[in-house]
Amino acid sequence: MLAYILRRIAQSVLVMLVVALVSFALFRFVGDPISSMVGQEATIADRDALREQLGLNDPFLSQFATFVMRAAQGNFGISYRLQEPVMELILSRLPATLELAMVSGVLAFVFGVGFGVYTALRRNGWLSNTIMTVSLVGVSLPTFLIGVLLIWVFAVELQWLPSFGRGNVVMVGDWPTGLLTPSGRASLVLPAITLGLYQMTLIMRLVRAEMLEVLRADYIKFARARGLSNRAVNFGHALKNTMVPVITITGLQLGSIIAFAIITETVFQWPGVGALFINSVRFVDVPVMAAYLMMIALVFVIINLIVDLLYYVVDPRLRVDRAATRH
């Protein structure tokens, strides 16, 4: 057990290093930060001096070594754009993204499972078909368009909900939350729907497919033969057995929700890490971009590690290959 855990952790560290190397290598080609950093009056000599000062002229490996050494200590340097320490910047934006991701994840999960179960049980009902088709509309339009349309309808025409930002936040310890104020909750609705729509469709389809399979399994037939009520069969047996893969996949999707938030945050001016990342890409703010990618990788590695260990605990035989359950 211990050996297995240690091996997985070592693998995770290796993955992080690879991500660091890849993302670091990429940034050398994304653009030149200098022209964003200096005013239009700066001379060519000024630009060269700044490039030298930032260490952009150093050999690649020495730049990378410095980066990894500092990153391991949680120091990602100073943002070229906002001039604040990158770590602080990201940590100050993370609560907004996590709150948005969590709320839209919960929304997606609740509605996804609900609709999924319903459409599986009433496989050919007209409401099922309607739900299946309408949910596809959500994944057949680009996220940014859905966001803009929601703003137009609910913020401009109906004036029910705010069009941008996070509303008022209150501090709970070190964590600024918008969940405790009316304006904070109102602000959360549209971005959460925009972000959650895609995941909801995904979960719904997954639940439906798993349910359909489980409902045909022998033990369900036996349960019915034993005279158990439909309700007990559907929810007590079928849904319960569906949940394991659904929860696994939902957990793995969390990382991608955080990253998908890039577009939602841009449209709604949501002050999270995704919007920070996009602004950094436009400015070629390399320290922030690198830190963001490392953060996404870290979130994923941790989730992956937890899932792996859970599998190990639940059933040691499964550790050989869990990838097959995760398509």
Partner: peptide, 21 residues
């Protein structure tokens, strides 16, 4: 696994940036 940790849009964005370089 590493690839999955980066969502598709992000990967596309990075590849695009690199290709331009």
């Amino acid at each position: 696994d590493v690839q999955l940790s980066f969502p598709s849009i992000l990967i596309a964005l990075l590849i695009f940036g690199v290709a331009r370089g």
